[in-house]
Design a protein around this nucleic acid. Sequence first.
DNA 1: AACCTTCGCAACCGCAAGGAT
DNA 2: CATCCTTGCGGTTGCGAAGGT
Length: 247
Amino acid sequence: MGRTTWFDVDGIKRGEWTVEEDRMLVAYINKYGVRDWGALPKRAGLHRCGKSCRLRWLNYLKPGIKKGKFTPQEEEDIIKFHSLLGNRWAAIAKQMPNRTDNDIKNHWNSCLKKRLRRSGIDPITHEPIKATSSLTRSPSTRRHSSSTTSFSLSSTGSVRLLNKLAAGISSRKLGLDRIKTVMISSEPRQAVEEENMMIRSKNNEEEKVIGCFMEIDENLISTMSIDELACDSSYYYYDDWLRGYFQ
DNA sequence: AACCTTCGCAACCGCAAGGAT
DNA sequence: CATCCTTGCGGTTGCGAAGGT
């Protein structure tokens, strides 16, 4: 997979990198280190621009880069960091040392963003999309869990319970928002670490899950099993927690 | 089998920040 | 202070693979 190879007016090669070019770039950097990308191609014997070399090294050749499918934990982290940092891919990548910003950005744009939307979550604000979009979803478009159904939220009573729980913790949300605002405006890394700690706390998980349910239309929710909810929601990774909570 | 659509990902492009002169 | 250059970042594009019709 890759782009067609071509040459620009200055004779600079563009497009897909060959194995030999990779080998030359790695050999040069291993010997001389990374400095002066502008002069590097000529010194390394590559007919590429410095920018292209830099990109190839940082996104593909640099040791320690993890390629391949994202794990559910990594996806959870990306969603979490994105809700905190926005489209600051470099900042997000710093929190996930083995993944490149390009990789994270690609995965977000091609997969996670759509998944959130399908789940009724606005990928920009990370808030539930208002009822209209939830209502227009056809049941056939829902993804179904392959696991066996443990129990279902088939009565409106369950929905009322959820909303009651959500209302009960809304006061805590104000405090959380305030803390988050302070954290974002201060040191980002520290903020993310603190956010990590908070998200791990059960109270915070309760708030996220139930806050999500608050916005889901009652008619829709009453037709969905807990499996479907857990699977369909962007908070699907709270599956275990959901099951435990409502048992 | 052929065609079309969607997905995944590597690479390109333009812009902005920051340092050097 | 102004200009130029380098580096880094985020948005976008191109293209092969996979899946659907």
